[in-house]
Design a protein around this nucleic acid. Structure first.
Lengths: 206, 206, 206, 206
DNA sequence: CATGAATGAGCTTTCATTCAT
DNA sequence: CATGAATGAAAGCTCATTCAT
């Protein structure tokens, strides 16, 4: 999927990662716009100028953070999700994966919930691709389940994907903004149940 | 509900509204951070300095846009929602109201989906209150429905409120970001069905 | 000396004075530059725009404050000073007059000590004239005293006038800046003695 | 005496000085308030932003100019003044030092006479400390001379210090404002004589 | 490769002045 | 005459980016 655009030396790759991680911490703490490049440099332990040896600028840095995180998300989870025996099970696994992945790194989650939302205004295509990627995969899962008659067929896969993503996304947002301290993963069963009820065939009580 | 903090002269109130509307257009077009105060002024048809006669600054302007919009949302919809005969019907009406209200003003919706998400980093309390207000009301609807045995009781009202909000919110976001041109309200039945299935008692197929 | 440039109606003259007094209070409180025209208006109890009916602008206002005060100083004191029987006595009276006049209105004194000093940079000619007026009169007193052999003749009248003014001026400045509360006039004997010793003939111990 | 607050690299220290000197020229030419930061930058030959790497802002710049000048004044002169054999001689040396120091740098003198006077309104404590420092040292000289019966004892050291300072200060002010071109130092004997007569014991002719 | 001092475009905000009422 | 809402030029300051070391 992600053929790294430049095959970097291991040394250079480590440096790149170091900066990326500094950027995640910095963005999470203050938000993209309020984060200065020098904040990122400090957080990453490099000089300001060094950042420009590895990235084109602040915008590019955010784009790469997001891209990288999404790549690693699917790299790690795609196989796991597809290994579910039935469509509902595959949705369960998606829910679990989403909450677990985000729950593991609150800083990264913060960047996703806050700065990714803001990015359409300046990352344009990049930003849209990130959303599209996610939604298309979920839509794929849904379509497959529908064709196997395991999921209800009276909504489009895209619509379903949006709503499922919406549920997960809001749980993450609320966790990120929450003052309280709880584990995001603990919401897995509740979310699984919610999505299952909404997606599995059966009469909607009217 | 909202006792305007300062009783302004009609003239001043009109001016205030004029600026607020200019701000919504400007924020929607470029996002809060990329919008200059002079953009707002131009969009509102006033001089830069005039803005500071009515607002404390850019932050205040966004806060007021959000507050005002939320106030008018509930002012307009609370009664309508509560007029539903049963809890599922009240949820239906909430879904309908949310999509209709947002669908009516794409600029305002854009500000909500994009800038409100970004605001915790700088509007702090204001921002949190806006989310809290919304969620508490929905949680109230859910709790009521649960005590009347019309909604399933095996999740907390807050959790339910988050997920319901997530569904609606994501439909709005996707509409706002979409290049295609469709009416947001047209998604009402789909969303109602999704929420109903998820919330009305009945066995979740496992 | 000062033939008021415009013979105003009594009503208008009262208004003019009202603004002038507001300006003195405002300038004293914050200094010329930090005083906004609207501060002056508030302090004088008129609308901002009204000020421009009586003065050309902020600069003009300061110039008039200073001019007016100096006029009234000499109007009141010239006769008194000249009524001294001998030159030393006339100097005594000058010292007394200076300290009494300034001591009577701390606000006015503040404007003189602080803003008059700053004014050469923007009031140019006006500012210079105010200093010159004062110094020429004192120099006149000294010259007269010298020709009557009552004051030492081994310095120029201008030099003497500067140093005498310097003594008085510094006492006023220090009073204006002082946190303590004492009457400026109480320094009269000390200053008179200082000036007398410095100016009356007699061998300077070497 | 002045333990520089931050031990800067030689390079940084040179830059700092360069800006300070640009600021003195700029302030002298137009006065603090009418000087724009960009004027200072231009006069110092650096970019606007560079100034903020070395100073906190315009106010800080003026404060540092004044502080630095006063430090260097005493650093250079304290020993010289105290080396006078008698109190009158020490006063002579103070007068000489004051006029010589100021006479050497008309720009710096201008800043002192004009902007230091204006500064109480915005430099508060800094400004007060500068005056206090000077006056206390002179008062110290006077008190010492009084206890040795070399200066008249019928005025307080502070009062004497004020008046002596007033004499010197006014000579500097008048030199700074003067259109004519003369050497400030040339007034040394006159001022010495004036101060001596005023301060050395001996009957004041009444 | 790495640094961080220097740059200067760009932004928010203030406030003297004007003029329709 | 008096008002004060509106104006918009002007100014201080920030910070992404560059480049000499």
């Amino acid at each position: 999927m992600s053929s790294g655009p430049k095959p970097l030396s291991p040394r250079a790759d480590a440096r790149r990662r170091q900066i990326l991680e500094g950027a995640i911490r910095a963005f999470a703490a203050r938000g993209f716009y309020r984060t200065r490049v020098s904040d990122i440099a400090k957080s990453a332990g490099v000089a300001d100028g060094t950042i420009y040896l590895y990235f084109e600028g602040k915008d590019d840095l955010l784009a790469q953070v997001l891209r990288q995180a999404l790549d690693s998300f699917w790299e790690r989870g795609e196989e796991y999700v597809r290994a579910g025996a039935t469509a509902p099970e595959r949705l369960d696994r998606l829910v679990e994966l989403h909450l677990r992945y985000m729950g593991e790194d609150r800083n990264l989650a913060t960047v996703f919930q806050v700065d990714l939302r803001h990015s359409p205004h300046f990352l344009g295509e990049v930003s849209r691709r990130i959303f599209r990627d996610y939604l298309e995969r979920v839509a794929g899962l849904v379509a497959e389940g529908q064709s196997q008659r395991q999921l209800r067929g009276d909504l489009t896969p895209r619509q379903a994907a949006h709503m499922i993503f919406g549920v997960l996304d809001q749980l993450v947002t609320s966790w990120v903004l929450s003052q309280r301290n709880y584990r995001l993963e603990s919401l897995t069963p509740v979310a699984q149940d919610f999505v299952r009820r909404a997606m599995v065939s059966g009469s909607s009580a009217t």
